[in-house]
């Protein structure tokens, strides 16, 4: 039994892959709580494609690909913030427009660079099994910065997400805080994508947080449970990937999805089964007026 658990960890690439996906799992899961609560589920997907022009420009200028991706992601984040200022355009609409625009810009830029070596999509969308020590340090540092910011700005981000009107009357810089949040999401997406692949990021940003939402009733608990689910899905997913010989990113995402289905069925209060069977009890224990 122990051997089943230890055998994959005999390999350096599995250890690094495990660490990378656990860190990314935690990072995305925590940031994802805001993504889920603010109803921006496809922001992660959008952002991971939106960085394409940044990558292309970085390639043309022979700069660091990651820096290009980061700049592009932040520009897109601020762009979403700009267009949704004072509710001119809805957030999902702004995301949709910028997503399509940047993706197209990226494809257009890449089509001007005609060379075999420019297999950008593969450079861009990493594989968790190809994670290097440098990558690990990068994820750790940027991830810690993002998580620390979320902890330090906890109450400001909470009030801006829950009730921006109140935030404004409290004289909090609402637009700037919204931008900070978007930038945090952008950082999480870029850091994660470089190492674990685009499909994994989009799913890890939404699925564990959505699962945690079903299981908890307060934001701090939601974040912790989401992080735990993200980490657990990463670990179980990588073991499954090792033993069932399937692609790692997909295995992690599917594991997280199974967690979600279980929670959707069995969660207290919000789960399907609880709702079907427990309605009568619920009425009995409802808060008194």
């Amino acid at each position: 039994m122990m051997e089943i658990l230890t055998q994959p960890l005999m390999y350096g690439f599995m250890q690094r892959g495990m660490l990378a996906s656990v860190m990314v799992g935690i990072l995305c899961a925590v940031v994802g709580c805001y993504v889920v609560l603010r109803g921006m589920a496809y922001l992660g997907d959008a952002m991971s494609h939106a960085i394409l022009p940044g990558v292309a420009v970085a390639y043309i200028l022979k700069g660091e690909i990651l820096i290009g991706a980061l700049i592009a992601a932040i520009v897109v984040a601020l762009g979403i913030g700009f267009f949704t200022r004072r509710g001119t355009i809805k957030e999902d609409t702004a995301i949709g427009i910028l997503f399509a625009a940047t993706l197209s810009l990226g494809v257009a830029l890449i089509s001007t660079i005609k060379t075999y070596a420019l297999d950008l999509t593969h450079i861009l969308f990493g594989n968790v099994l190809g994670v290097s020590d440098t990558d690990l340090i990068l994820i750790a540092v940027l991830g810690a910065v993002v998580l620390l910011t979320i902890v330090l700005l906890y109450k400001e981000l909470l009030v801006v997400s829950f009730d921006p009107v109140l935030a404004a009357t409290l004289r909090l810089p609402v637009e700037r805080l919204k931008n900070v949040l978007l930038i945090l999401i952008a950082l999480a997406v870029v850091v994660s994508m470089q190492t674990v692949g685009v499909g994994l990021v989009a799913a890890m940003l939404v699925t564990p947080a959505a699962t945690a939402y079903l299981l908890t009733r307060r934001l701090p608990a939601m974040m912790v449970v989401s992080a735990a689910l993200g980490a657990l899905a990463s670990i179980i997913g990588l073991y499954l990937s090792f033993y069932l010989n399937i692609v790692s990113g997909a295995a992690v995402v599917l594991t997280a999805t199974i967690f979600f289905f279980i929670a959707y069925l069995f969660a207290p209060q919000r789960g399907l089964i609880w709702n079907v069977l427990g309605r009568r009890n619920a009425v009995a224990s409802a808060p008194a007026e």
Binding site: E156, V159, T169, Y213, L219
Partner: peptide, 15 residues
């Protein structure tokens, strides 16, 4: 939104 009554009222103090 996953906040308690206490949380919401406390937000009034955040400013």
């Amino acid at each position: 939104f996953p906040v308690s009554v206490n949380d919401v009222v406390m937000m009034g103090r955040y400013g």
